[in-house]
Amino acid sequence: MEILFYIAAAVTVLATLRVITHVHAVHALLYLVVALIALALIFYLLGAQFAAALEIIIYGGAIMVLFIFVVMLLGPLAVEQERTWLTPGTWVGPGILALVLLGEVGYLIAVGDHLPNTVSETRQKGLSIALYGPYIIGVELASMLLLPGLIGAYHLGRRVSKESR
């Protein structure tokens, strides 16, 4: 099982690297999908089966599809322009920040054993009870956040009749 984890982790890291460095937007998004699926596998191996399934259904299946949909509609992709955008000036800042994070992870690994090896198997029942019990405020806030989005989308997509102009 451990070897599966390392393979999935390597796939995630490599695919994410390609997401950043690829100049072709649709290809980059496809790499992101691969990274998400590998991440779902990691969730599964850690025992969070529900999170793994949701990762694929929601992120892999719905959100990334919408991303690709929009990017596909943008017309001919400006590959050359992308190439000019990826200059050292732009990636040095985030790179340093990411290095700091990497250092922290390295430190944690070096210090060692107080990290949980595997999360205990989360059942969907427990998850639901947690969501609708202690974390009810978060769920409600998220749904309130989604409602204005829904109304806004309806407003933008509404067919304007001639009388109301």
């Binding site: 999908v33 089966q49 399934a53 299946g61 599809v65 690709i68």
Partner: peptide, 24 residues
Amino acid sequence: LNMGVMFFLAMSSLAAYSVIIGGW
């Protein structure tokens, strides 16, 4: 699988990619 239904839904949502990127 404990998550049989979810697995089925996940696979059917991934199947969408074939159509989308195939057409693209």
